[in-house]
């Protein structure tokens, strides 16, 4: 059966990825691909290695083995700043808003890594609330606003592959909906998105495919249109 990712151009390809924090071996041979323009999720229970996989892609683990390729460039062994310059924007699970920077400084912080990013006006157009509060201290924003700032700031940089780590965690349903709208708009603009998500209902409204992780490995792939047919299997994976 042809993988959806092989039908179009593969942007991100992760092969036999092993990751370590100090002595502990946390990723045990992760394999998956993301095609250009796709929205793909990594799902699974807590502690199966979803966040660690994103950190591994950014080169933030103590040690890693295997292969991570983005548009043909091998990332394993590169320094995080070189990895970012391949064209990857990262939204960490803690949102990573800087307390000593204003909202505007937070927004302008990530350097431009490629041509073709959104202009500041376009970013403010997507997130009008951030423009109103641009002089505030970054961490004085509400949780939802911080999450939007965390996404907004990587849209300026020209990165075309976005790694979003649980963008809806701890947010009110109305904010989750807004973030869902933003992600759909980004997909329409052609961004490729790898999304780590616990909120499976949310993920199913925007993703093309879902990779299921267990014990530091990808164990299954479910296309979004097969979700209902595979509901039982999925419930077992997620333990719900």
């Amino acid at each position: 059966m042809p993988d959806a990712a092989t039908l179009t151009r593969t942007l991100l390809s992760v092969r036999d990825l092993h990751g370590f924090y100090g002595e502990s071996h946390v990723l045990h041979g992760v394999n998956f691909q993301v095609a250009e323009g796709e929205v793909v999720t990594l799902i699974g229970r807590n502690g199966v290695g979803k966040t660690t996989t994103l950190r591994a892609i950014m080169g933030l683990l103590d040690r890693q083995q295997g292969s991570i390729q983005v548009a043909g460039t091998e990332l394993v062994g590169l320094r995080p700043d070189k990895i970012a310059r391949v064209g990857i924007g990262y939204v960490p699970d803690d949102r990573g808003i800087f307390a000593s920077l204003s909202v505007e400084e937070n927004l302008m912080l990530p350097p431009v890594v490629k041509q073709g990013g959104l202009t500041v006006e376009e970013v403010y157009g997507l997130f009008p609330r951030l423009k109103e509060r641009r002089k505030s201290q970054g961490t004085k924003l509400s949780g939802g606003e911080q999450q939007m700032l965390s996404i907004a700031r990587i849209l300026r940089t020209g990165a075309n592959l976005l790694l979003l780590d649980e963008p809806t965690e701890g947010l009110a349903p109305v904010i989750v909906q807004q973030i869902g709208d933003i992600i759909r708009q980004l997909k329409a603009k052609g961004f490729t998105i790898l999304l780590v998500e616990q909120n499976f209902h949310f993920a199913s409204t925007l993703a093309d495919r879902h990779y299921v992780m267990e014990d530091g490995k990808v164990v299954d792939m479910i296309p979004n249109d097969r979700l209902e047919a595979e509901a039982e299997k999925l419930a077992r994976y997620l333990g719900v």
Binding site: M58, G59, P80, A84, G96, T157
Partner: peptide
């Protein structure tokens, strides 16, 4: 504040 994250932005 967060050296790793700043580096992951390309600095």
């Amino acid at each position: 504040e967060k050296p790793q994250l700043v580096q992951a932005f390309g600095v």
